Amino acid sequence: MKQAVHIGGKPSSEPDPQGLLHAVALGDREAFAALHDAVAGSVLGVVHGVLRDRAQSEEVAQEVLVEIWRTAPRYRRDRGTAVNWILTLAHRRAVDRVRSAEASAAREQRAALLDRMPEYDEVVEEVEARLEREQLRRCLRTLTRIQRQAVILAYYGGLTYRQVAEDLALPLGTVKTRLRDGLVRLRGCLGVSA
């Protein structure tokens, strides 16, 4: 059964959190039980106001009450009331839980992004390929008509020298010469050494 605490010589039905916290600091388990009963609702209210989740709030409130038992000797009466000290602990612990959850979510999001990121930069690859194609088109325009036709048929059309010669109605030797000269000119235009 709870013992009434006397304030100013008069019996009081309300426990004195200040006196209880002092007794808890000295290791008094009964005082802790009384303090627990006196502040548990307020602690849960503060924590729930921050977390907005009943299950997490109950868990954090329990952690705060354990922390009160462990850290009661650190309480300094000259810095505020026992209730304010306890509710400050509750608020800090709730904010820590929010920050921890946000940090965890941010880590998971970064990990998910890393899983989706290609091993190379697709945009850079596409831009480089586009620039190379444009440079090749410019260089192809520097070739003679027959050189350009022979290169396109052989390298883009996949035809053999003989097929290119038949397609252009030119002798095989002429096609080989035009292809060789065209490739030399392309290498020079593209800045590729032989």
Rank of each mutant, 00 (worst) to 15 (best):
L186E: 08
I68S: 06
R133F: 07
D28L: 02
E59R: 06
R162H: 14
Q3C: 01
E128H: 12
R76L: 15
G158Q: 02
R74H: 04
V95D: 11
L131S: 10
L114V: 13
I7H: 10
L140A: 00
G9L: 00
R79C: 10
T174Q: 07
R99M: 14
A33Y: 05
G45A: 14
V47M: 07
G45N: 12
D53N: 15
P73F: 04
R79K: 14
P73L: 09
V151N: 04
D28W: 00
L159Y: 07
M1W: 08
W85K: 00
R107M: 03
A169C: 10
E63Y: 01
L190H: 01
T81S: 15
E125T: 13
K10S: 13
V123C: 09
E126I: 08
R52S: 13
V5Q: 14
E119S: 14
A150P: 12
D96E: 09
V175Y: 03
G9C: 00
E58N: 00
T81Y: 04
R116C: 14
R54D: 14
W69Q: 08
L190S: 05
V127Y: 12
A25L: 05
E59L: 00
D37T: 04
A72G: 05
L172G: 03
L168D: 00
R52T: 09
L190P: 03
D53R: 12
Y161V: 15
L21H: 04
L153T: 04
Y161P: 13
K2A: 13
A106Y: 09
A105Q: 15
D96C: 03
C189K: 09
A82C: 02
R138D: 12
V5P: 07
W69I: 07
V124H: 11
G182Y: 03
Y75W: 15
G45W: 11
I86S: 02
G157P: 09
I152D: 06
E102A: 07
V43M: 05
L172N: 10
S12Q: 13
Q56C: 09
V5S: 12
L65H: 05
Q3A: 01
L159W: 02
G27Q: 12
P17F: 10
G158N: 01
Q163L: 01
H36E: 04
G41F: 08
V123D: 12
L131F: 04
T144H: 02
A61I: 09
C139R: 05
V5A: 13
G19P: 02
G182P: 01
A90R: 04
S104H: 15
R187P: 01
Q109R: 09
L159V: 05
S193L: 11
A61W: 06
D167P: 03
L113M: 07
G182E: 00
A90T: 07
R130K: 11
R74C: 05
L140P: 06
G41N: 10
V123F: 11
E126Q: 14
A40M: 06
Q149A: 11
V123M: 12
K10I: 14
D53I: 02
L183I: 10
L159T: 02
H36I: 01
V127M: 10
V47W: 10
A154Y: 10
Y161T: 09
